[in-house]
Simulated scan of single mutants.
Amino acid sequence: MGEHAEQAQETEAKARPQRTPVDWRRTRERAVSFLASLVRWAGLLFAAVLVLHVIFVIGEANQGNGIVSFVRNWADGLSLGFKDLFTPSDAKLRVLVNYGIAAVFWLIVSGILAKIIRRVGGAG
């Protein structure tokens, strides 16, 4: 019975999945990389909303439309202090320049933040 019990234990040990040790460094690098990517995507999304607003204004989209109104409201919030930075007499040019600068701002800032996150987090 002793020999049979030993064989049963060996068989059971082989059948059990072996636990692999958690590679915390790799897990942290993945988390940092994910966070940096999230920041970049957020900046890209903000810039896209601003550019979409510029397109709607230059294309003279219906301001009463729900989508146009939604984009305008978000763009106003995302434009920060750039909304009235330059004040040319042409309203379309004003929107193009000011909201365009705000879009570029978000792309640059999100890129810098993503690099900082990667460096501080050790994800290369």
Results as ranks from 00 to 15, higher is better:
3 E>H: 15
52 L>Y: 09
8 A>Y: 05
58 I>V: 13
56 F>A: 15
61 A>M: 11
34 F>V: 10
46 F>Y: 04
45 L>A: 14
4 H>M: 12
72 R>H: 09
72 R>I: 00
45 L>V: 01
28 R>H: 12
6 E>S: 15
70 F>E: 05
55 I>A: 15
25 R>W: 05
72 R>N: 10
35 L>G: 04
48 A>W: 03
27 T>E: 05
43 G>F: 01
55 I>R: 04
61 A>F: 01
72 R>V: 03
50 L>Y: 00
61 A>I: 09
21 P>G: 14
57 V>L: 01
25 R>Q: 10
21 P>C: 00
31 A>S: 07
18 Q>P: 09
17 P>W: 08
13 A>G: 00
56 F>H: 15
37 S>I: 00
57 V>S: 08
11 T>F: 10
15 A>E: 09
47 A>E: 01
31 A>G: 07
44 L>D: 03
55 I>H: 05
15 A>D: 02
10 E>D: 06
59 G>L: 03
37 S>A: 05
49 V>W: 04
22 V>P: 04
60 E>C: 02
31 A>W: 12
30 R>I: 07
11 T>P: 04
12 E>S: 12
32 V>E: 13
17 P>F: 06
55 I>Y: 10
14 K>Q: 14
58 I>T: 07
27 T>F: 12
28 R>G: 06
13 A>D: 10
59 G>I: 09
19 R>C: 03
18 Q>Y: 07
11 T>L: 13
70 F>H: 11
8 A>M: 04
61 A>Q: 13
62 N>T: 02
49 V>Y: 09
55 I>Q: 11
3 E>A: 14
8 A>L: 14
53 H>L: 00
3 E>N: 13
16 R>H: 12
18 Q>F: 10
17 P>E: 15
36 A>W: 02
66 G>E: 12
69 S>C: 06
12 E>K: 11
6 E>F: 14
28 R>Y: 01
15 A>Q: 04
3 E>D: 15
16 R>W: 09
29 E>F: 04
63 Q>I: 10
50 L>E: 01
12 E>Q: 14
31 A>H: 06
26 R>P: 00
17 P>T: 04
27 T>L: 15
40 R>P: 00
44 L>C: 10
41 W>R: 00
43 G>C: 07
20 T>Y: 12
21 P>T: 14
29 E>M: 09
61 A>S: 15
67 I>S: 01
7 Q>I: 05
18 Q>H: 13
31 A>Y: 03
33 S>D: 02
14 K>T: 11
59 G>F: 10
30 R>S: 14
25 R>I: 10
13 A>R: 10
15 A>W: 05
21 P>R: 15
44 L>S: 07
67 I>E: 10
45 L>M: 06
14 K>P: 11
17 P>M: 11
65 N>L: 06
7 Q>R: 11
49 V>T: 13
63 Q>D: 11
41 W>P: 02
64 G>R: 11
29 E>Q: 14
41 W>T: 08
